[in-house]
Design a protein around this nucleic acid. Structure first.
Lengths: 212, 212
DNA sequence: CTTTGTATGATTGTATACAATTATACTGCA
DNA sequence: TGCAGTATAATTGTATACAATCATACAAAG
């Protein structure tokens, strides 16, 4: 989102751990030991600890006895998340429709095109990646830190959950079409249409996820 | 929200700094120097740094050159926040209506009674405090970490903003009445009524804040 | 065999030392 | 006087040392 040119070690550790937790490298319930992380990542405890504090702040890990336990996403969490996204995604999309620039539209379109490309290749990992990126970009292009900070963690946790479930190809196909509809509305700078399109998309995503 | 019996120094520093930023002790744009904070709080850099990383994670401070700058809440942020709260508070209240226990209702009632008490005394600091606590409790009693984590930072930032504006007594009066309506709906375990009541309250709060 | 107490080890919390970077101020030169 | 360059100081980033706490295992007593 923001230009992180000069990653400090602490930043790198944070991003690595966040990715690993979201992608399931660390299982739900697993206990993290600082020194193990230090050895694995080749840094001292200080940057590891700072990264852990940030993860704790966004409830990806929580205190457990003395150490830290990796938090998973329960089905109940997911229900709450999708309900909240149903209520918020439309707002984000409407804002993006008002504010998105031509350059940003171009970036969004490239993401969309790539997603279609990977769909043709049946490369579900990359499809998922582009799917994620598309939504992140919409949050970003809403040009509101509040929207970005609120929706990104919610979306991340859904990704974390979907890691577990098998990918469904027919849904991937529809999902790309829905993304295209969202893109068209944003390109037309039509807030109402964008809100409607993303609401439809989120509804379908919710139904799909809750079934799986 | 969770029982924090054995506050570590880092936790204490975090809470202190968070409170101080939200209450305006540190002005928007102010640069925080680690050593100054250490001396002021009488601890070493380690707990201070960990606290700062957590504040950074919830965007109460941000990197600025080498150091950290205190972030304020702009009017535009506030518009976004209130718009999102309009969409989310109802969900939180509905959940709370389904799940709240008798004991929790008692706690909520005590908060409400105190707010009325302070209203009689025209003690606007304590009125605000109880107002805040009431909403925090609703988030907490929704018994959903997702709801709590999403709405608490939004609410906190509103408090931060209101710090600047003068308190309006007539609004405080109405606000208590609206809180009572919310409480009644929760006590009746009526999700629809709770959602309607808190939506009304949030709408009014939004109008009041945006005017001020 | 169970339970309790103690000792030992593992792990985290905190402080501090050191390195690297950046801002600042001063000096010399044009 | 103005500017550039360099030296110096301030500040953060990282590593490590030390203290405190907690869990575990083992031994002894009932």
């Amino acid at each position: 989102m923001i230009e992180h040119k000069t990653h400090t070690l602490a930043d790198q550790v944070f991003e690595r751990l966040e990715t690993d937790i979201l992608s399931g490298v660390y299982a739900r319930g697993e206990i993290l030991i600082e020194m193990e992380l230090c050895q694995k990542l080749g840094v001292s405890r200080t940057p590891v600890r700072e990264a852990l504090r940030r993860l704790q702040q966004e409830h990806l890990v929580e205190e457990y006895g003395k150490g830290l336990k990796v938090l998973g996403v329960t089905t109940e969490d997911l229900q709450d998340i999708m309900e909240m996204r149903l209520r918020l995604e439309g707002f984000a999309a409407a804002r993006a429709a008002e504010r998105i620039t031509e350059e940003q539209l171009q970036e969004l379109k490239e993401t969309l095109d790539l997603q279609e490309f990977y769909l043709g290749k049946h490369d579900s990992d990359h499809i998922k990646g582009m799917d994620s990126k598309f939504h992140e970009l919409v949050y970003k292009f809403s040009d509101s830190v509040v929207i970005y900070d609120t929706l990104t963690p919610l979306h991340n946790k859904v990704q974390r959950y979907r890691q577990k479930s098998v990918e469904n190809n027919s849904r991937a196909n529809l999902s790309v079409k829905e993304h295209r509809a969202i893109y068209e509305a944003l390109a037309a700078h039509d807030p109402k249409a964008a809100e409607a399109a993303i609401l439809e998309h989120t509804k379908n995503a919710k139904n799909h996820i809750m079934k799986g």
